[in-house]
Amino acid sequence: MLATRNPIDIGLNIQQVLKTIGYHGNCTPPARTMSLVDEYLENFHNLVEPAYSYVIRDVEWVQGPISFIRDAVIFKSQVIARLLEQCQKVVVFAVTIGNHLEEMVNQLAEDGLILQATVLDAIGSSAVEKLAEFVETSIREASGAQDLSTSRRFSPGYCDWNIGQQRMLFWALNGDTADIRLTRTCLMIPQKSISGIIGIGPGNSALESYNPCRTCKKRHCPGRR
């Protein structure tokens, strides 16, 4: 188990944020948008408190859509079962950038400054995504050093993995949830948080390329990878 609130430098580049707010391809945003994004990128560090927590557990058995993880953690999902049947271990993680940034977004929206709210919200989304990537990369590197493969990230609420399974996932974290709490409908507070699992299996296995989207018929799914 590793839980930390140590400062992590979340470096964001402007292109990432511009893509999140809808600019794509070769289009050049107007100077006004560029200066707004620049201004917020310079200052967003004061609004984020990166924290993450993860635990590595043994996968005990998989049958049908049920994956049984050590200490009675049970995941119910066909997609997750297909992943975990290739794994010896599973990492359960949660990351957050805290709630200051979203408080500021809400304040801007209340003041009618929707453009500013949207830009800051996009920066928050990019930042929490970057933090999840940081955790994923750390796990991949540590696993690689032991000649093990890792999968991509999977989160409850996507594919056939019901969002209600957040409770099981948070339980698996042994109470150290990086100060993220769940609403009654299993959404995370602060909102700019990501939780999920990463599978760990034998080196050079097909695990790394496991992508259920390739055979999924939901072509317009917003989570498609």
Binding site: I21, G22, T33, G112, L115, T118
Partner: peptide, 18 residues
């Protein structure tokens, strides 16, 4: 126009309507 351009215009309309 992209989303931010549309939002800036929507803000202007919102301010006018207020």
């Amino acid at each position: 126009y992209f989303i931010p351009d549309m939002l800036a215009s929507a803000e202007a309309v919102g301010a006018g309507m207020e």
